[in-house]
């Protein structure tokens, strides 16, 4: 069995791509990857995705997207792609999964998204799930009546900190600079929250604790002074990295691991009509957070998913 399209990832980019390919009667298979539904499944209210007057919960939004593609015949497997290779015999591709299955398709759309970044400290790995977490909405509950820290200075850090005040008695945002990347509205909300305090210019040296987190060792970015700060929860919100490692050597990636897309010459009219979502390999397209270090929004990913589907469809037409 050869699929027309295999889509890697089931976030907004993947589902939108599947919606378009399956509605175009292309035989479509989605491989969900390690986090079925993507990053929105670990958020709460989504207020910036259009079409939901009262807002919608992230996991619910993803279930709706799934129902929509299933309605048009998309097949979804709860497997994770481990490699993509060109078929020797034809122009198609073969995707191998961690579950040791192989699937063949004429074209591939990569929509594997991004995952939360960790600091890379051994103490952080050791205490993972024992007070170290990169998902406040998943783990906040276990910190009822406790004091926690959030590491980071962007919107995610502010959002996580605000969410954690529902459970924790005190939330301290620790940031390595004194300026914040967070948007004004998000930063102000945190500053106004009486349960949130800020510790700036502090670099995390180590997470402390034997069997569970008991504190954090900090170094002042300006004076170099080392101090310890007691805490029971250590939440990371220091950004994301694209889930593209398995594609290294297959398609071109940039220095941060994002998939490099074809860059059209904007002064050349003909060049601007080239498919915008094509990767360095003909027949492989990409969309969403795995190509986008800048916007990282569900609605942007969905839009790019649509583009990738239309590009793939056109490409398939040209091949036949």
């Amino acid at each position: 069995m050869i699929y027309d399209v295999i889509i890697l990832g089931t976030g907004p980019a993947g589902y939108t791509a599947a919606l378009y390919t399956s509605r175009a009667f292309l035989k479509t298979l989605m491989l969900a990857g390690p986090q079925d539904g993507g990053q929105l499944t670990i958020t709460t209210e989504v207020d910036n995705y259009p079409g939901f007057g009262k807002g919608i919960l992230g996991p619910q939004l993803m279930e709706e997207m799934k129902a929509q593609v299933v309605r048009f015949g998309t097949e979804i497997k709860l497997e994770q792609a481990s490699s993509v290779a060109r078929l020797a015999s034809s122009k198609g591709f073969v995707v191998e999964t961690l579950e040791k299955n192989k699937y063949e398709a004429k074209t591939i759309i990569v929509a594997t998204g991004a995952s939360a970044k960790y600091l890379g400290l051994p103490s952080e790995t050791r205490l993972m799930g024992k007070g170290v977490s990169a998902c406040a909405t998943c783990d906040g509950f276990f910190f009822k009546g406790k004091e926690v820290v959030v590491i980071g200075g962007g919107d995610t850090a502010m959002e996580e900190a605000n969410f954690l005040t529902k459970f924790a008695t005190k939330v301290t945002i620790i940031h390595r600079r004194d300026e914040f990347r967070a948007s004004k509205i998000m930063l102000e909300r945190s500053q106004k929250n009486p349960k949130i305090t800020f510790l700036t210019n502090k670099i995390v040296e180590e997470v402390l604790g034997e069997t569970s987190v008991s504190g954090v060792k900090l170094k002042d970015a300006k004076t170099g002074e080392v101090s310890e700060f007691p805490t029971q929860g250590f939440f990371l919100a220091i950004g994301h990295q694209p889930n593209t490692e398995f594609l290294r050597g297959v398609v071109e990636l940039d220095e941060k691991g994002y998939i490099a897309l074809y860059k059209a010459n904007m002064t050349d009219k003909a060049d601007m009509l080239v498919p915008q979502t094509r990767t360095s390999v003909e027949g492989i397209f990409a969309a969403g957070d795995c190509v986008d270090p800048r916007y990282r929004q569900a609605v942007v990913a969905a839009g790019m998913g649509c583009m990738a589907a239309m590009d793939a469809e056109k490409w398939l037409e040209e091949q036949s």
């Binding site: 539904g37 958020t43 709860l78 998943c138």
Partner: peptide
């Protein structure tokens, strides 16, 4: 727990 998004992902895997 009901509020845990990733737990929903684990469900179909456990069923299989």
């Amino acid at each position: 727990a009901v509020w845990c998004g990733p737990c929903r992902m684990q469900d179909p895997i456990l069923e299989e």
